[in-house]
């Protein structure tokens, strides 16, 4: 056992090749989306299509997209909604997570059971009643309505509770002895120390709400409030035969998200394991 410290560190070449092939296959739609968007419609519609990168390079599809679709408006709307949802979710999650982690209070277990229950039960199930509640509160067709109804803090509450539990209690005791108020302990000790958890929670909330096509489709019928996913689907219907333009708009909608994802990758690696592996 010279340089093979763990036997699970065994490199299986056939298996590795299969993994790579699978990932290549997963990336095929992205390759097509991106490279076909720079080609004239006719060259991607013939059989077999011409998918050689940068051959017959043209910007005509992007021109069509910017003429016929409110790309910037849709993008802006999506960002307004998802950034607000991300910040609000993180705030709600960290305040509740702090209470669960560091304060003793009657009913704690019952409340935490509710957090766990909502964590397991996705909100889509309540699609119709949620819509009716939003409708009765006059929350449809407005950003604040979509934002309020999209905030789903269960995952974040759970994550920040786990995180704040791991912070030493002596820190909070010391702050209290030094005369810190209850609010002060939260804002000056808990919040600054749980910024990594805040990052993970907001990034997850951001991507979830950015991709929340179904809810935005139902809630926003005003064209001025249309978001990127709804706009993409709308454009796909109205420009049914212009495949290259559809792919150009898809690229515009996808690339910023992939860049943000790559920039924030470490939060994903941390956050994804919450709930599955007890830390």
């Amino acid at each position: 056992m010279k340089n093979n410290k763990y036997s699970r560190n065994y490199v299986s070449i056939p298996s590795t090749i299969l993994v790579i092939l699978l990932l290549v296959w997963v990336m095929v739609p992205f390759y097509i989306m991106f490279f076909a968007s720079f080609k004239p419609n006719f060259s991607i519609l013939r059989l077999p299509p011409d998918l050689v990168p940068l051959k017959d390079f043209t910007l005509v599809n992007y021109k069509a997209v910017f003429e016929r679709a409110d790309v910037f408006l849709w993008m802006k709307n999506s960002f307004i909604i998802s950034v607000s949802v991300a910040l609000a979710t993180a705030f709600i999650a960290v305040t509740a997570g702090y209470a669960f982690a560091k304060i003793k209070f009657p009913g704690k277990n019952v409340f935490f059971a509710l957090v766990m229950a909502t964590l397991m039960m996705p909100k889509q199930m309540l699609l119709i009643p949620n819509y009716l509640v939003a409708y009765n509160l006059h929350l449809q067709d407005s950003f604040h309505g979509v934002i309020l109804t999209t905030i789903a803090p269960a995952f974040g509450v759970f994550l920040s509770r786990q995180y704040i539990t791991s912070l030493p209690s002596t820190l909070f005791d010391a702050a209290e002895i030094d005369g810190c108020s209850e609010l002060g302990k939260f804002f000056r000790v808990a919040l600054p120390l749980s910024l990594p958890a805040v990052g993970t929670i907001s990034i997850f909330a951001f991507f979830t709400s950015f991709n929340d096509y179904l809810w935005q489709l139902i809630m926003l019928s005003n064209k001025k409030l249309m978001t990127m996913p709804v706009g993409l689907s709308f454009f796909g219907q109205t420009m049914h035969n212009n495949r290259a333009a559809q792919l150009a708009l898809s690229s515009i909608g996808t690339i910023p998200l992939i860049l943000i994802f790559i920039a924030c990758q470490k939060f994903f690696i941390k956050g994804a394991t919450v709930g599955a592996v007890k830390g």
Partner: peptide
């Protein structure tokens, strides 16, 4: 965006 993927 799943919609973008679906278009592809």
């Amino acid at each position: 965006c799943s919609v973008a993927l679906v278009l592809a």
